[in-house]
């Protein structure tokens, strides 16, 4: 059993295996890799690197996808606090 590390995923702390890749994380979260964007420590990742990039202690991962939206006031949910309240 590999050692565990702490990472941050979409703003939340999360433990994961020390040898896990970004691809492993997405699979664990049951997120299909098509139509998502992954930002690792503020760098947008190339999809083909998901299975090659191992996660490191303290990594900050953002996983984003498309949601319903027209313009700013139309967006459902609060996102990262940018969204204007209706």
């Amino acid at each position: 059993m590999a050692e565990a590390i702490w990472i941050q995923v979409n703003g939340e702390q999360r433990g994961c295996r020390a040898d896990a890749t970004v691809g492993d994380l997405l699979r664990e979260l049951a997120i299909k890799t098509e139509r998502v964007a992954v930002e690792l420590n503020l760098e947008i990742m190339d999809r083909k690197d998901f299975d090659h990039r191992s996660l490191k202690q303290g990594d900050r991962v953002e996983i984003l996808s498309f949601i319903g939206g027209g313009a700013s006031a139309d967006v459902q949910g609060k996102g990262r606090g940018f969204v204007h309240a209706e």
């Binding site: 939340e12 979260l29 998502v36 984003l64 996102g79």
Partner: peptide, 19 residues
């Protein structure tokens, strides 16, 4: 059709995808 880009809900994966 326009769409917005937001964080995927990682705690509730039952949520469906717009696409």
């Amino acid at each position: 059709v326009t769409v917005a880009v937001r964080r995927v809900n990682i705690t509730d994966r039952s949520k469906e995808n717009l696409l």
